[in-house]
Nucleic acid binder design. Structure first.
Length: 232
DNA sequence: AGATATTCCTGGAGGC
DNA sequence: TGCCTCCAGGAATATC
């Protein structure tokens, strides 16, 4: 956490809560926005009874509530940014469009000329923001697109299917409360149930609905799960 | 500039 | 049981 961040927050009033890509935004009446990223394992604990291991930040409010930012793996981040400069703040300025509103034509424009595998490009937050490894694998599966295919060489028709798949897989996952792998949980401690619905992620060697077998490869240091029979 | 590799960190899983 | 190694993930950074 940057020096002085806590002092700059004292006495500030929260005016709104927003989200951009994977960043949570807490606006204040001081003209500052608290920007947080939960990384892999981060979560806010609301009104914790006591401080626990990996509670890195504790914030109290004048009406007696407390929130603790708990992040065992420390992949998350917390920054205080001037609200009117947020769009120019480097991590946000580089972000691509929101995934819940992505369309095939936009994907085509952003993938044009790119030879890297579509899997790697979808993980790049500058192409589309908000997708992580799980949802990229699941979306490519739903769109029947092979993960090693060069991003720039995919037809518009297939990118339309991909855009639809991205929107749908995220909406379903959100409705299910997210995807609990090892230690993910929401602020109330509830686990996410979307992991029960994975078609390919973490299912190496298991049967796909088509009768094929799910395969695992490594791309850019990340696991990719896919069905070689359905995905072309 | 684009593609790929490395780094951070912790706890769960698996091996012996 | 307990210790050990390996591995997963997002994004910044380094390297080719």
């Amino acid at each position: 956490m940057p020096d002085g961040l806590g002092q700059r927050l004292v006495g500030a009033r929260v005016t709104s809560l927003r989200r951009r890509a994977k960043y949570g935004l807490i606006d204040t009446d001081r003209g500052d926005t608290l920007v947080f990223h939960l990384g892999m394992s981060g979560r806010w604990r609301v009104d914790p009874t006591e401080v626990e291991k990996h509670d890195h930040v504790l914030i109290g409010t004048d009406d007696g509530h407390r929130v603790a930012l708990n992040d065992p793996r420390r992949f998350g981040s917390l920054d205080l940014v001037r609200t009117n400069e947020l769009e120019n703040w480097p991590p946000v300025a580089a972000l691509g469009p929101e995934p819940l509103a992505i369309e095939g034509r936009e994907l085509r424009a952003r993938l044009a000329g790119r030879s890297a595998p579509i899997k790697a490009l979808l993980l790049d937050q500058r192409i589309v923001a908000g997708l992580g490894n799980i949802y990229v694998c699941e979306a490519l599966y739903r769109a029947h697109i092979h993960p090693t295919r060069a991003g720039g060489g995919i037809s518009l028709a297939r990118l339309e299917r991909l855009a639809t798949a991205i929107r749908e897989v995220l909406k379903e996952a959100i409705a299910a409360g997210g995807s609990t792998l090892r230690d993910f949980a929401s602020p109330d401690g509830e686990l996410g149930y979307f992991s029960k619905a994975f078609a390919v992620y973490d299912r190496e060697g298991k049967a796909c609905a088509c009768g094929g077998k799910v395969k695992r490869i490594v791309q850019g240091g990340r696991s990719t799960f896919f069905c070689p029979r359905c995905q072309r």
